[in-house]
């Protein structure tokens, strides 16, 4: 699915959070929304998932305006993985089955159960299926929540900081896994992230937010030391390791910070 966001503005209590946000993501692509804390990344995600209603703008998914669709229709088009879900003593299988809710009439059908089993097989999480999710590690839980989103059979997948509470190995595993799913099922995915290097490695497009506005958007080429300095207020150099650009915080800045800290 192709997502086109145009002229999106969101105010909260008169305070401008997002202004004139505009971007586009194609099928098969992962877009990473980047920017410092509090810049409106999660708000943008919540506007796209229609939890928040923007005051202006349009969100077109294959030329359908999400803002004019009903809840159930939206729920069949996109799925959302929150940063932290509530976790009760629910079996992973049941937690994933919940993703079928937009498709369930009176009760679950055999097909729904089989779809849950299919996604469990694809993600190789059969060993988790009969475990309660409140006993799981961060990485395991994240896989279950992604499985719940996928069993919704969406065209667009939204993830709010999917790697924020994971160790390095799990981060790579989840992101590689996402990319595999996006390619295999022709999905479109949008995720917010803090780690630029992970984003460079796994995303196809990048959207840098600054003060609620799009500062830059595009493919990997747009990422330059100047851009990072402007957006994050931090001087960086970009090195190349194994053919991958790697953003390294400027040593001068580090030293300057350390000196000012030790002076206090």
């Amino acid at each position: 699915m192709i997502l086109k966001v145009a002229g999106l503005s969101f105010r909260y209590n008169g305070l401008k959070i997002l202004e004139e946000v505009e971007f586009r993501v194609n099928r098969h692509e992962i877009l990473a929304i980047l920017g410092p804390n509090g810049v409106g990344k999660t708000t943008l995600l919540r506007c796209i998932n229609t939890l928040l209603r923007p005051q202006a703008g349009s969100i077109l998914l294959d030329d359908q305006d999400l803002l004019s669709l009903g809840r159930d229709e939206v729920a069949r088009l996109l799925a959302y993985v929150p940063q932290r879900g509530e976790t009760g003593p629910i079996l992973a299988f049941d937690a994933i089955l919940l993703g079928r809710r937009p498709h369930i009439g009176w009760d679950v059908r055999r097909e729904d159960i089989q779809k849950v089993q299919a996604i469990i097989d694809q993600l190789h999480i059969g060993h988790l299926a009969l475990r309660p999710i409140n006993s799981m590690s961060g990485g395991e839980l994240q896989k279950v929540l992604i499985a719940r989103a996928l069993v919704q059979e969406p065209g667009l997948l939204l993830l709010d900081e999917p790697t924020s509470s994971l160790d390095l190995k799990n981060q790579i595993e989840i992101l590689a896994f996402l990319r595999m799913i996006v390619r295999a099922h022709s999905l479109t995915a949008i995720l917010t992230m803090h780690d630029i290097n992970q984003a460079i490695r796994f995303a196809d497009r990048f959207l840098f937010l600054k003060e609620g506005m799009v500062y830059a958007a595009g493919t990997r080429e747009i990422i330059t030391p100047e851009l990072i300095r402007e957006v994050y207020g931090l001087p960086v150099t970009i090195a190349e390791v194994n053919g991958m650009p790697v953003v390294v915080p400027g040593l001068d800045h580090l030293q300057a910070t350390e000196t000012s800290l030790s002076a206090e």
Partner: peptide, 23 residues
């Protein structure tokens, strides 16, 4: 009983429930 799935969804968090189509 008819809305039992909605309570399950709400148990998973308001935001999740919303994106599962629950008002």
């Amino acid at each position: 009983f008819f809305t039992r799935w909605d309570y399950n969804a709400i148990d998973a968090g308001d935001e999740t429930a919303h994106t599962l189509g629950v008002n």
